[in-house]
Amino acid sequence: SKGEELFTGVVPILVELDGDVNGHKFSVSGEGEGDATYGKLTLKFICTTGKLPVPWPTLVTTLSYGVQCFSRYPDHMKQHDFFKSAMPEGYVQERTIFFKDDGNYKTRAEVKFEGDTLVNRIELKGIDFKEDGNILGHKLEYNYNSHNVYIMADKQKNGIKVNFKIRHNIEDGSVQLADHYQQNTPIGDGPVLLPDNHYLSTQSALSKDPNEKRDHMVLLEFVTAAGITHGMDELYK
């Protein structure tokens, strides 16, 4: 796709999030870079409003799984890469995230190029959380598991539907599940690639910047598309 050509090198990323969870309002600002050749993201996020009212790991899918245009699609799968094909005009990404036995996040993001920078601007609203639950009670460990993110075409809306389940580790050794339902639709009216069913395999590492006084998260992530085999004719070339 034409959009794919915008991702040949390292691309700067800007992320802006405004959130409200159970009436606790907050903002997060992030910057870093993405390299789609390797499916690599390096980002640093800062809570610009003081202390973040929710655990950082609960925002990873909104912040970095928010820029799935940096996923590495192998050559034989490039015609299934909706995310890059929607660029530079970008796409709207909407999600509902259900935390098992707790509340939910609803998010709406616009992901697009502004100049040479890929920008992810998000509004997040969280409701029905227990004040002493795993999320508002800050009981999650500061780490992140690997996940597969399942993608299918949504021809009606000229976009994709995505769903997956995140496993958050809790300090007591148990797990907090979070079910994600995602819809992506193009902002522009140019042609986009509608994929066959496949998935993104994601690995994320969270860390801290020892010199950063503000509440923050440093993230390194690798994302690769998989799940579609080479056609038989490919094998015999």
Rank of each mutant, 00 (worst) to 15 (best):
K165N: 13
K157N: 13
M232T: 13
S207G: 08
M217I: 04
K78M: 07
E114G: 02
D128A: 10
S27G: 08
T96N: 11
V60A: 03
D18A: 07
M87K: 00
K161Q: 06
A36D: 03
N184D: 07
E114K: 10
S201C: 14
T202S: 03
A205V: 15
Y65F: 00
S29Y: 14
I166F: 02
I127L: 15
S64A: 02
I160T: 07
L14V: 14
K78T: 09
V175M: 13
E234G: 12
I187T: 09
I135M: 03
T117K: 08
D179N: 12
D189A: 06
I135T: 04
S146N: 12
G90S: 00
T224S: 14
Y91C: 02
S29F: 09
N145I: 10
F70C: 06
N211Y: 12
K130Q: 11
T42S: 15
Y105F: 15
K40T: 04
E212D: 05
G34C: 01
G173C: 04
S85Y: 08
L193R: 12
H147Y: 07
K208T: 11
K100M: 08
D35Y: 02
F222Y: 13
Y150F: 08
G133R: 04
I46T: 05
Y73F: 03
N143D: 11
Y181S: 05
K112T: 11
D233G: 11
P210T: 11
I97L: 04
L140Q: 03
R167H: 15
V162M: 08
H230P: 15
D128E: 05
V67M: 14
V10M: 08
G190V: 15
P74T: 15
Y142N: 04
Y144H: 07
M77L: 09
K106A: 10
K208I: 08
D215G: 01
L14Q: 13
Y38H: 14
D20N: 11
Q93P: 01
L59I: 07
L63P: 00
V21I: 10
E171G: 12
Y38F: 13
K161E: 10
M77T: 05
F45S: 02
N169G: 03
G34D: 00
H80Y: 14
L17Q: 00
